[in-house]
Design a protein around this nucleic acid. Sequence first.
DNA 1: TTTTGTATGTTGAAATTTCAACAGAGGGGA
DNA 2: TCCCCTCTGTTGAAATTTCAACATACAAAA
Lengths: 224, 224
Amino acid sequence: MEKYFEVLCMCPLFRDIAHWELTKALRCLNARVFSFEKGEAVMNESEPAKYVGIVLTGSFQIVRTDFFGNRSMIANLVPGELFGESFACAGVEVVPVSVLASEAAEVMLIDCLKISHSCSNACQFHQQMIDNLLQIVAAKNLVLHQKIEVTSKRTTHEKLMAYLMLQAKQFGSLEFEIPYDRQELADYLEVERSGLSAEIGKLRRQGVIEADRNRFKIYKPFDV
Amino acid sequence: MEKYFEVLCMCPLFRDIAHWELTKALRCLNARVFSFEKGEAVMNESEPAKYVGIVLTGSFQIVRTDFFGNRSMIANLVPGELFGESFACAGVEVVPVSVLASEAAEVMLIDCLKISHSCSNACQFHQQMIDNLLQIVAAKNLVLHQKIEVTSKRTTHEKLMAYLMLQAKQFGSLEFEIPYDRQELADYLEVERSGLSAEIGKLRRQGVIEADRNRFKIYKPFDV
DNA sequence: TTTTGTATGTTGAAATTTCAACAGAGGGGA
DNA sequence: TCCCCTCTGTTGAAATTTCAACATACAAAA
């Protein structure tokens, strides 16, 4: 188990848990490691959600299937990343996605109830893990909420301004860098890249913003 | 405190907590009731998030202010509703919203750490409240994720079909009712009501769906 | 019964976005 | 240096959405 410690330490679920406690913690949680060949499923749609998964080696894909069987890729998971925590915590009876190994890969599965329910031994790390889990799920919540707030605007102009002003507010300055290139920003705002570039160009000519690659500067508020 | 029991029982935070335990629980949590006049603030922007709030009487508004001071209304809270739980659980250092009394109102505030950290008395309800809190935040997460999945489609047609097929999948049938009227559905999908009505009419004429008020029936999958 | 109001559907013009295609500006590597 | 590739900006036509208005159906109220 020790060979996975490096990747486990990167996992937010174990944040602030001492290295020496990890062995005890994993035993107490009844954490188990499973190996998968390419294409095998860790979780299948319509199974009840019970486990939190942590990618140890290799990579996995989260896939969703709609009513008619059409599949779409939701995300790609690499070592250290967590999955299934929202489904397990929400106690959904049917997982809406499948998690498939995209190559030979290993995963650690932990029964979510083992995390949230303190064990009879009153292990110290339990409290920290509950805090971590709550923190992870709540933080994801805020990120999603923020994205909805921006993308619920109807025009590219409004979306862009809403996004930039949110960044300005968070950064505490009207001059800041964003973590996306043009294509990624367009994907985030749910608009066309070319339309986004056109809008940025327009705002630049109007003197509303300055934009160089991922560095932005807002000069004055237009309509919000 | 007992006079609030009825509304507290409606609050998901106290789900499955016995009536007789509530008094003890509230004392242990150091839950406190505050009264506000119209316009007074329970939480202010740029305060650290620490408390979970439960509306007891009256109503509150959640308001957001952008970088330039423009305000927008996020939600209206009525008795039994919970607020601030995501901010408190995520441990944000600065709340991005204000919560204002929209009339004379009362609210119960609970230190979020008191919920997630078992007390020394090892109260039984603690475990249940942690489960409830995790469940509330995780469930909200799934709802937000679902909305993003639907609204990230680019056209009214795609959004509508994505929404309807998700409903069909969840309901387990191609015939189902939705909880929205046309205007509400348009707001959810982030499109224009008239455009939505037009799209529904088109699909109806094409024989793809049947739609009567909030009752829908899907006949065949178009493009997904 | 008539009136009133709400929910839904329809329409056409204006505004906006998407789409496809191309151009220019670097950055690396050969 | 030259070539290749990625990122960004531009453009114009086609598709789509928004907007404002009005029509219709139906239910509740008078």
